[in-house]
Design a protein around this nucleic acid. Sequence first.
RNA 1: GGCGCUAUCGUCUAGGGGUCAGGACGGGUGGUUCUCAGCCAUCAAACCGGGGUUCGAAUCCCCGUAGCGCUACCA
Length: 493
Amino acid sequence: MASKVRVRFAPSPTGYLHIGGARTALFNYLYARRHQGTFVLRIEDTDQDRNVGDALGGILEGLKWLGLRWDEGPEVGGPHGPYFQSERLPGYAEAAQRLLAEGKAYRCYCDPEELKKKREEAMARSEPPKYDRTCFRLSKEESEARVAKGEPFALRFLMPEGETSWDDEVRGTVTFQNSILDDLVILRTDRHPTYNFAAVVDDAAMLITHVLRGDDHISNTPRQIRLYQALGLTPPRFGHLPMILGPDGTRLSKRQGSVSVTEFRDDGILPQAMVNFLALLGWAFDGEREMFTLDELTEVFALDRVSKNPAIFNYEKLDWMNGEYFRALPLPVRSDMVAAYLREKHALPESAFRDRGFLERAVEAVGDRMKRPRQFLEYAGYLFVDTVEPEPSPWTELKAKPAAAARLRKLATVLAEVEPFDHDAIEKVTRGLAVSEAVKAGEVIMPARIALTGKKVSPGIFDVILLLGRERTVQRLRHAADRLEAESPAPAS
RNA sequence: GGCGCUAUCGUCUAGGGGUCAGGACGGGUGGUUCUCAGCCAUCAAACCGGGGUUCGAAUCCCCGUAGCGCUACCA
């Protein structure tokens, strides 16, 4: 048995948890749980320029919402902390110093602006934009002299000759020629480490055994492996997960839809659905079964079933899956979610849905028409207003039926008297009216639906009537009849 | 430009020398029904191209092509 599995998710604090990051975190979490390992959360905040206010909050919030609890990291601590790179600076400096002392790194005094210019020129000449090792060629004396003078410098790693390859957990053997790898900067002028260096030092210090990350890191891997070797460390296993692309086939961006898990949450997506959907992006169980809870996923997740090709984010399928989970929720839970939605969006005055019993009955009536809380008002909005203004198309349709007004009146009359005022009795008199009118039930029901809800689509009409109550039902039916007669030309006699 | 990765229905994918190439989303049709949703049934929809290897290739190999990624004192 190899050493205990330790994996990590290492986001930089950008303020929100990106969907791609969430998938990476999920796969790491699943791998850890599957192997009774440890899931570490580490924050890569070494770039001073990019650090902003509450950059961490959104990420922690997103992970918690998805149910991905980390075993070590911010808020929970652990034996390999601190878990913020900004608090681990001495470690990087020490490691870099060692490389410098061993001749595996060298000081570079080049001006970043200058380098950038050179790089662009090289690109223009269509040559590989590689650092030209100007400072590597400096004599030891000169280099020392310049430090002594207090000249600022960065530390560069001296990339060895040869080639570097590794056995990737998802792609098999990957090989890079070292000649195309740069002498990368490991310590910046400001004494902060760069990403590749910090990641290596930390992954080693935190005893990470498997690095599972996005495909976009694949060309960082040979550099990191060389860094491990230079530091006398054994590299972990690497596994590169396929990218998640937007519908247009390029990197997922805001232009193409939501990209942060918080946005999805605020849109009424359930964490179970998000987790399930994300798991299926780049991984499959057997190609048949696709509904999994987080716990079920931890039982069956396997890296050898991770796909190699990039996956396009399919918003429709997420929506479908969300519906599956949402409909399965107990009524009170759905009702509470709808209430929370109405409150947060100020979609209705608070008083309109204060009656929890009523709201719950309305949610029940809407039933599986709803895939997300925000769809509630589409199917039940007319319950919370004093008068309905019919939508133009149904109203026109209604006006085309000469007998409609009279039937609405008759329905109003029977409903005004029916006892008890319950679902079965209402259904009985309504259908009875259709029989006595010698028409199909729909000929009574559809006009009633339009009169009562203003729409062509609604929950079952008897539920609507019951919810509206006798008073409002009768009033709306009569009002619609009045209006129909007023707007129609007088019938020819 | 260089380097790397990838290539099965529109999308997510299963399969991995002999299959009617399977499932799901989305789409079509029919049924249930007061509409819609749901449910049930059903249909259409794919192995990037070219060369090999082989009795046989979507599957293995090579070459193209395409897409994506990386090419920073960002992560």
